[in-house]
Design a protein around this nucleic acid. Structure first.
Lengths: 231, 231
DNA sequence: CGGGCTTTTGAGCCAAATCAAAAATAGTGG
DNA sequence: CCACTATTTTTGATTTGGCTCAAAAGCCCG
């Protein structure tokens, strides 16, 4: 079942039952993948499109000196061509040409997929702003705000509580900081009663304050055209 | 004349004379724009696509505290929807629907435009790596290597000398550094005889050494399918 | 109940920021 | 072509955010 994906795409365009069915028909076998697995290595030919159903995956680059930069997080309902898993994840893969065929014959689906690409690119740009012009504590806070907003999109953030199974090292490689510094920042956010985070569960205790602190403005996520899922 | 654009797209797919003509037919009036002009402000509806013919433009974001993060540079031959100019520039704009129509009826053109989008996204990802995991001096050096490679693509980098009219402040807002620090790095690169840069002209004196220093690997620019321009 | 991750703490250091002012360049109008 | 301004580049001094190194403590899981 591709429901998280469908749920996400609903925000990009109003899908008909036929659109949803066309998408669901593409679902291949589900696949459980352990943590820290590369699904497609850099340079390899892109095959099927992976959809994350549970867990977290990411896209990243390694540097010659062993450094790692994470380029994107993939939460449930999000998809990509080349990813590694951050945690044990449940994935599905959609055959590329099947997806293209479905898009060709379903305009709303095409619009929604195009919208999803736009959002991906906008997130990447915002991450650049994050690394370039925000200092460590705001940077981490901003990432928390964003992932919360994204998971809310797919209905996985009841009461501002989300499953967030990344390690502090993953967070460091996302934010361009050292793990030690990330640790100190996380403690600071905890002490300020903005978040609680342990055992893979992140609770945002005071979303408004966290967003103010981070300078978070969700407009880049293009959530504007919010419309109730039309059942 | 859209020759820099066409020259760039040739690297993405082999264009026929008809493809080139279709693109040229879209050219609107040329437009000279002074430095530091916003062509499309954030949030505005994207209208025509701008092509840079001469000069430099960029895409950027402002922060509430007045900080600025440059998200992309647009060298001659490159195009975008929302840009501000870094310097006095010569632009042309292509009507959006005309471009879409041309893409629809010219497969090679469509492939080339799609390739250009891929390259744009890849550059953005590499910039994220740059900000996240390279220190100041390598970061600046990497930007120099990249812009040199991109201008070579459109034939504007004879003997590793390019027009590079950005200020050190622009460079700082690209690299996520302070102008003062950028200045010191530039001097260091000059002292090391890697570059010379004055009066808007950047000379890369020792490309191999600069690339080694920066850890520059041009594969992300997708220059692979290099083929002589088929006249 | 170990053994391997992950998180936490402490100490010292370095890259890069800030602040402030001077020098050099580039532009502009007379 | 020169004076006058505005912008850009450069220098110096100081502060600080964030890194490194190293070790301890806490967790998770078989």
């Amino acid at each position: 079942m591709l429901s998280p994906l469908i749920r996400k795409l609903e925000h990009g365009a109003a899908l008909t039952a036929a659109d949803r069915a066309a998408l669901d028909a593409l679902a291949g076998g589900e696949e459980v993948v352990g943590p820290h697995q590369d699904l497609v290595r850099e340079g390899e030919a892109p095959g099927d499109v992976r959809v994350v159903l549970e867990g977290f995956a990411y896209r990243y680059k390694m540097l010659p000196d062993g450094g790692r930069q994470i380029l994107a997080w993939l939460a449930p309902g999000e998809m990509d061509h080349s990813v590694g898993t951050a945690t044990r994840s449940l994935l599905n893969h959609l055959p590329r040409n099947g997806l293209e065929a479905a898009a060709a014959s379903h305009p709303a689906l095409r619009r929604a997929l195009w919208w999803a690409d736009l959002v991906d690119a906008a997130i990447l740009r915002e991450w650049l702003v994050n690394l370039g012009r925000r200092q460590g504590d705001r940077r981490i806070a901003h990432l928390f705000c964003e992932v919360l907003a994204r998971l809310r999109l797919v209905g996985l953030a009841p009461r501002d509580v989300i499953q967030f199974p990344l390690t502090q090292v993953d967070l460091a490689d996302t934010a361009g900081l050292s793990p030690v510094h990330v640790n100190r920042i996380v403690q600071q956010l905890r002490d300020a009663r903005l978040i609680a985070w342990r055992g893979g569960t992140l609770r945002v205790l005071d979303r408004a304050s966290l967003e103010t602190f981070a300078g978070f403005n969700p407009s880049y996520l293009h959530l504007r055209r919010r419309r109730g899922p039309q059942e």
